[in-house]
């Protein structure tokens, strides 16, 4: 019989006051939503001005005329920041979508087929996973050449191994369940089992890993652009803006502060959202009343 160490009234209060995690999740979702909304809205309504236009004196500090100041060429930092945020988010999201497609196919096949198919896919993942992510990204960028293609391919190759592993493990566990056995013995074809039975049942894992991959993607983009292998001027990205800001850290700290703050808030928010999703979808997560 279930026993509780607190009286009912206190347990009810515990339930009501339990979720500081929910508050964090809501704060993270709002912060990320705001960043995405403002970055996307700036593309539709250019309220911050043209990021490529010289609008004022060089290295002007934040003021009413230039809310985030101006950069070394006299361009609006706010306009460049919004463009950079958009570029980073679009590149990372696109890369994560590619990662998800590749990882889901590889993970489902490895988890369902097992045997040599699983061995080949897992060992390839292990090889990629054994490289530190930024080293692998630099290596890929050196081969592909600096630019957005390098960022995209680097993020994909850095994030695919972990997501493939996770999807494979989840698929392997689902593949042993009775409804899959029933489908197999009913003569259902492998693609139908993979995409109609296994995929919906591993979608939670995919969503959680997708959030982690997104934060890794933003970091990799930042790192590559910072090192000069990523997005190239005159376009901007968060990594590129941080690199430019680093050169004027003492004279014009606002150049560094704004993109760094957006990067930190975006990654923190995505990780918090991912953590909350993982906790909610994990059946082992106990929700004690006391």
């Amino acid at each position: 019989m279930t026993t509780y160490s607190l009286p009912l009234s206190k347990r009810k209060r515990a339930v009501k006051t339990r979720p500081p995690r929910d508050a964090l999740f809501i704060a993270a979702a709002c912060a990320l939503g705001l960043i995405v909304l403002v970055a996307v809205a700036a593309a539709v309504i250019p309220f911050a001005g043209d990021p490529a236009r010289i609008v004022g004196p060089r290295l002007s500090p934040p003021s009413a005329a230039y809310p985030f100041g101006t950069d070394a060429l006299g361009r609006s930092v706010l306009a460049r920041l919004l463009e950079g945020t958009r570029t980073t988010l679009v590149l990372s999201t696109l890369a994560v979508v590619c990662t998800a497609v590749i990882s889901v196919i590889l993970g489902l096949v490895a988890g369902y087929a097992g045997g040599w198919a699983r061995e080949v896919i897992m060992r390839l993942s292990d090889v990629l996973y054994s490289f530190p992510s930024i080293v692998l990204a630099i290596l890929i960028a050196a081969v592909v050449g600096p630019g957005q293609a390098a960022v995209l391919s680097s993020i994909v190759l850095v994030t695919v191994p972990l997501m493939t592993r996770m999807v494979s493990a989840a698929a392997m566990s689902v593949a042993k369940r009775d409804f899959v056995t029933t489908a197999k013995i009913s003569g259902v074809s492998a693609p139908v089992i993979l995409f109609r039975h296994l995929l919906p049942n591993v979608s939670g894992t995919i969503a959680v890993q997708g959030t982690y991959a997104l934060s890794v993607g933003i970091l990799v983009e930042g790192g590559l652009s910072f090192l000069g292998y990523g997005v190239q001027p005159p376009r901007s990205s968060l990594g590129l803006l941080i690199q430019e800001g680093g050169s004027y850290m003492l004279q014009a700290p606002w150049l560094l502060f704004a993109p760094a703050a957006v990067l930190v808030v975006a990654i923190l928010s995505i990780n918090l959202i991912g953590d909350t999703m993982r906790d909610r979808l994990d059946p082992r997560e106990t929700r004690s009343l006391v």
């Binding site: 369940r177 009775d178 409804f179 056995t181 029933t182 109609r196 919906p200 049942n201 979608s203």
Partner: peptide, 8 residues
């Protein structure tokens, strides 16, 4: 119960 797909 386990013989039916829980997501459909």
């Amino acid at each position: 119960i386990a013989s039916l797909n829980p997501t459909m």
